[in-house]
Computed example of a mutant assay.
Amino acid sequence: MFNAPVPEPERGHTSPVVIPVHDVNPTRRTPYVTYTLIAVNVVVFLLMPGLAGSVAGDGGLAQLCRLHAFLDHYAAVPQELIHARMPQLVPTGGTGVGPQGPGCVVGPPGYDKSPVLSVLSAMFLHGGWLHLLGNMLFLLIFGNNIEDRLGHVRFALFYLVCGYAATYGYALLNADSGEPLIGASGAIAGVLGAYLVLYPRARVWVLVPFLIFLPLRLPAWLVLGFWFVLQAVYSAGEGVSAAGSVAYAAHVAGFLVGMLLAWPLRPGTPPPPEPRGLLWGRRARHGW
């Protein structure tokens, strides 16, 4: 065994220029699947090893090594998905001092990893509080209406299909990458794509950072359309300095798949109500 640094995981979040707060689009049923997905994501995040280091960015080497060993086991890795190329050496979670200084100890993997199942586990892993909370905010605001339209079981399947499509779409474009890919944003991008197709005229209360946070009520087609354009621009290589380690191509793939899956339901989807008599995105007298 020898010591080596472990690279940062690829991840993605919604990275909004505007922050959605509430949509003016009531539902008929309780979104149990949406709430369950949020709860599971939060619980898994809290149980991730090396959490302090991943959140604060200044954790000790031992914490980071445990975190990277965990991600190597449970995150999706493009070269594993496309080429079934499993690594001979992986982080073990231990630390040591090698020729290049302190690092993580690596050795043969002590587990059997299924690349296909790693896509599922990676959808519930996040790299920090901002990564988690950004994703869960978008899922909470837009997921309830898609679940209401699809039903609980079909929404759960829809979410998983979009997540898998996003991950494999990114992997196809980065087939030789050995960086772990984590995050729910690919699946949530599919939810956003479906929302744009089914409820383009729904109003969304957003906070726009302009000296202060300005509250505005904007149509969903503008909010989500602008979000998608940004993801497409970044995935094409523009604004690389802002892209960082965010997997924008996964957002684009998930969004497009969500649109395609929702398109057949568009004719039978009732339009959202016209927003009259609103108080911060809610009807003042009608209880929603």
Rank of each mutant, 00 (worst) to 15 (best):
A166N: 07
L140F: 09
L67V: 05
S114G: 11
G143I: 11
P180R: 13
A171D: 04
H131M: 01
Q88C: 03
I141S: 05
G101Y: 10
I188L: 02
P180F: 08
L71E: 09
L120M: 13
A84R: 08
D112K: 02
L130S: 12
H152A: 15
G127E: 07
Y164K: 11
L196C: 02
A171F: 11
G93D: 04
G127W: 05
T95V: 12
A189K: 00
Y111E: 04
L150V: 14
V90K: 01
T167P: 13
L125S: 04
A122L: 07
K113L: 12
L89G: 10
V77A: 12
R66I: 04
V97W: 10
A171I: 09
V105L: 12
M123I: 00
C162S: 12
A187P: 01
A184P: 14
L196Q: 03
I141G: 00
L173F: 11
V106A: 03
L133V: 14
Y74A: 11
E179Q: 14
D112C: 02
G143P: 01
A122M: 07
L150W: 05
G169L: 05
G127M: 06
A156N: 12
S177Y: 11
A84Q: 12
G96E: 08
E80R: 11
P115V: 05
G101E: 06
L89Y: 14
G98A: 08
T167V: 02
F124S: 09
V153Q: 15
L172R: 00
K113F: 05
V97Y: 14
G190M: 00
A171C: 03
G190D: 08
W129F: 10
P99V: 15
Y170L: 13
P91G: 05
A166H: 03
V191M: 02
G107P: 03
L192N: 13
G151T: 13
F138Y: 14
R149N: 07
A75H: 13
H73Y: 14
L133I: 15
M123C: 10
P78G: 06
L130Y: 08
G94R: 14
A76H: 09
H83M: 03
L181V: 15
Y168H: 09
